[in-house]
Computed example of a mutant assay.
Amino acid sequence: MATTRSSAVLVSGTANTAKLFVAALAFTGAYVGFSAYDTASSAPRPTQTVTLSARELPITSSLSPRTSQPAKAGKVSVSALPGSDTGCVKTFVARSVVVNPDPDRTVMYDWRLARWSADTHTWRTYFVDYDGFAGDERTVDWRPRISANPGWYRIELNVEGTRTVKSDRFQVSC
């Protein structure tokens, strides 16, 4: 009987060992599979190249500084600066004549680039430039740059002690 008991213990020990071996293989397979999934999901996604282009829809006359209409008091003329279209950057030239109500004093004025907000249905100041001069009158110009921000714009000239003069609106596409 001693032989039978030894055989039974040996057989049951082998069965337990086999079960532990199968369980270890299952665990190892699950670990390797999870590691491979984690590595695959953390791989960087391929990059996608996007090309931007700008297109101007003219609202005012052709605006070359040499061929634009003469500047007038009470009117702001705007034109695109030729050759300024590099990628999605556009430079504009705004011109007007400022008449100093008191030629013995310095008159201050500011240019504002305003952008139309479709959310609030108002013109919002995009950026401002300040200047001034002493004398009777002067033809003034300003060269704002719009970079990668499509929309409707206008340029406003505010002269100290007078009303604000606004250009026609123009669209920048990119």
Rank of each mutant, 00 (worst) to 15 (best):
V98W: 01
R105V: 08
A43L: 14
A148N: 12
A18F: 06
R105P: 00
A54L: 09
A94V: 08
A2H: 06
Y109W: 07
D102T: 12
F92N: 04
R95Q: 14
T86V: 15
P58T: 10
V22Y: 05
E160W: 03
A8I: 12
F21Q: 13
D102Q: 06
D168S: 11
V9T: 09
E137N: 11
D129C: 00
W142A: 09
A26V: 13
F34S: 06
G161V: 04
T51G: 00
A23S: 13
R55K: 09
S7C: 05
R124T: 13
Y130V: 15
N149Q: 10
I146S: 00
T4P: 00
D141M: 08
A23F: 04
G83V: 09
S62M: 10
R169T: 10
S7M: 09
V140R: 06
A36C: 05
A36E: 10
S96N: 00
E160V: 01
A18N: 11
V89T: 15
P70K: 02
A15Y: 02
D110G: 08
E56C: 02
S35V: 12
F127S: 11
G87Q: 05
W111K: 09
G161N: 05
Y31I: 08
I59D: 13
P46V: 02
S77I: 12
A94Q: 07
S77Y: 03
S68W: 05
V78M: 04
R66K: 12
P82A: 08
S41P: 00
S12I: 09
A2C: 02
N149Y: 05
Q171K: 09
L57Q: 08
D102G: 00
S147Y: 13
V140Y: 06
G132A: 03
Y126P: 01
T91L: 06
V97H: 03
Y37D: 00
G83F: 07
D38Q: 11
G74P: 02
F34D: 01
A23Q: 11
A73H: 07
T3A: 14
A26F: 04
S64R: 02
G29M: 14
M1F: 03
A18R: 12
Y153V: 06
I146R: 00
S147N: 15
T39F: 07
T139G: 00
I155C: 06
V97C: 02
S7V: 07
A36L: 14
S173H: 04
P70F: 00
V107F: 06
A43N: 06
P150F: 07
F133M: 07
A80N: 05
W152M: 13
V9A: 08
R143V: 04
V78I: 14
G13K: 09
P144Q: 08
T67N: 08
A43Q: 13
R95E: 14
L52Y: 15
T49H: 12
D104S: 15
A148S: 08
N149A: 13
L113I: 15
A148V: 00
R138A: 03
E56G: 01
D141I: 01
G29H: 06
M108H: 10
T3H: 14
W116I: 03
S84L: 09
V32Y: 03
A36W: 11
A15L: 12
S53K: 07
